[in-house]
Design a protein around this nucleic acid. Structure first.
Length: 439
RNA sequence: GUGCCCGUAGCUCAAUCGGCAGAGCACUGGUCUGUGGAACCAGGGGUUGCGGGUUCGAGCCCCGCCGGGCACCCCA
């Protein structure tokens, strides 16, 4: 004991039962993404370091970087968005635009681990490249809502804001542009620390009180989106950035409504400030009010990112879901049913002399498309094999002893009920298929 | 990256003031040589996360590292 090496900090192993649940979630997401016309791609886990740097702002320090054997400076991907931009820049002549892709893969961050925060975690991204239309942003929000709904995520809401509105705040308040991040950081905490806290935070970071109040008044506007947009348009009249942002958000909300997106799952939130440098338009964050695990996903429009690689601007928007957080919630709350094992049937082995009969039968079951296994242990007591099936949750066992073999029969046992039926050896595969609802 | 809490069997935890490392569950075997889940009996399992220090003596005190958690920062 205690001699076995540990896994690296912030990284984990998954047992088969957990993997079956993860795969179930991933398959659900894949289905939803493909229902919207998103197509799969894959990119390398490792990129040249320069591909990754200069895209994330402050967070850049969390990139896992090192030198490979050829002394190249490389890094593990920090998200799937920057690799997508690089991918599009490389393959732009081979793609049909608007290009819709999904990408489900692990990413790495050298962050300090906590609940729901790991150093290796999977992201599930869906993005649309090559259009500025707010239809694309609406699709992204909608696919997100459908994906989270499909796995029964409780009480989730997609918060929506706009980068251009956020950028106009400093201007409106009359403080220098460098203060913009400070303002964003402060207002993002409104729900958490309240108005006084936000004012205090801005003031202690050198923002004059009247400017701080002006900002707070603006982002505190709530209500029906259209009303909020009218109010904002009024107060921000003449501010070009803000006007663009408002117009785009109006279109986005109209499209969402026309698509029939479930309105209880999205909301305008003027305090939402997403930190990543590359966002340029609408920004989104998916949160579960019930689950207490932070955000489930972040998203937004990043019209300048592809251009950083190709010199040719291609607008893009997309969303990202964090599998580990979703998985942790599902597991804790038992939200999704997934089988505990892959096998549907266990063919038992009576003794050394009947091994051949059992092997022949399991082969037949497999050719009939039934996920099945034969007991491959060394000790062949039947009770041991029953126990094996029971513990793994295999629903059916086939008992094939000398009596059955002699009579050309087999005994099919339903493990949950204990009910046994003797059937003809020739009917085993078909009977099992019927029981499993396969034919 | 900063501050704090924590680490004893596979899991959950106990061990008085620094004085012989334990229990339940799980696991293995048996009661039970053609049938799992229950019960009873027995058994295996530990350099107390790792390394150093203090002490006659360390699971307990001190230092470093590894790992987990909380709050920041930030984020999925």
């Amino acid at each position: 004991m205690a001699r076995a090496p540990q896994v690296l900090r912030g990284m984990r192993d998954f047992l088969p039962e957990q993997m079956l649940l993860r795969q179930h979630v991933l398959n659900t997401f894949r289905d939803v993404f493909e229902r919207y016309g998103f197509e799969p791609i894959e990119t390398p886990v490792i990129e040249y370091l320069e591909t990754l740097t200069g895209k994330y702002g402050e967070d850049e320090k969390l990139i896992y970087s090192f030198q490979d054997r050829g002394e190249r400076d490389v890094g593990l991907r920090y998200d799937l968005t920057v690799p997508l931009a690089r991918f599009v820049a490389n393959h732009r002549n081979e793609l049909t635009f608007p290009f819709k892709r999904y990408h489900i893969a692990p990413v790495f961050r050298a962050d300090r681990p906590q609940r729901g925060r790991y150093r290796e975690f999977w992201q599930c991204d869906a993005d649309i490249v090559g259009t500025k239309s707010m239809m694309a942003d609406a699709e992204v929000v909608s696919v997100w809502i459908d994906a989270l709904s499909a796995i029964n995520m409780p009480g989730f809401v997609v918060h929506i804001n706009h980068r251009k509105l956020l950028m106009s705040l400093a201007e409106v308040a009359g403080v220098p542009d460098e203060q913009t991040p400070t303002i964003h950081r402060a207002i993002d905490k409104l729900a958490k620390i309240g108005e006084d806290g936000v004012l205090e935070e801005m003031k202690s970071n050198g923002i004059p009180e009247d400017a701080a109040r002006k900002v707070l008044d603006l982002v505190s506007i709530t209500g029906e989106p259209d009303k909020v947009f009218d109010e904002l348009a009024n107060r921000l009249a003449g501010n070009e950035l803000a006007e663009e942002g408002i117009a785009e958000l109006r279109a986005l909300f109209r499209f969402l409504d026309q698509m029939g997106a479930a309105s209880e799952h999205y909301t305008l939130d003027l305090t939402l400030a997403r930190g990543l440098d590359y966002y340029t338009g609408p920004v989104f964050e998916a949160m579960s009010v019930d689950a207490n695990i932070g955000s489930l996903g972040g998203a937004g429009r990043y019209d300048g990112l592809v251009g950083m690689f190709s010199g040719e601007d291609l607008p893009a928007t997309g969303c990202s879901l964090g599998l580990e957080r979703i998985f942790d919630v599902i597991q804790e709350r038992n939200l999704v049913d997934a089988p505990s094992t892959v096998s549907k049937a266990l063919v038992t082995v009576f003794n050394e002399d009947t091994i051949g009969d059992s092997l022949a039968l399991v082969g037949e079951l497999r050719r009939a498309g039934i996920q099945s296994e034969v007991f491959v242990g060394e000790k062949l007591e039947l009770r041991r094999q029953m126990q094996f099936a029971n513990r793994k949750g295999i629903p059916l066992t086939v008992i094939l002893g000398p009596d059955e073999i002699q009579a050309g029969q087999a005994v099919l046992r339903e493990m949950e009920s204990g009910e046994q039926t003797t059937i003809s050896r020739n009917d085993v595969a078909e009977t099992i298929r019927t029981r499993l609802g396969l034919s």
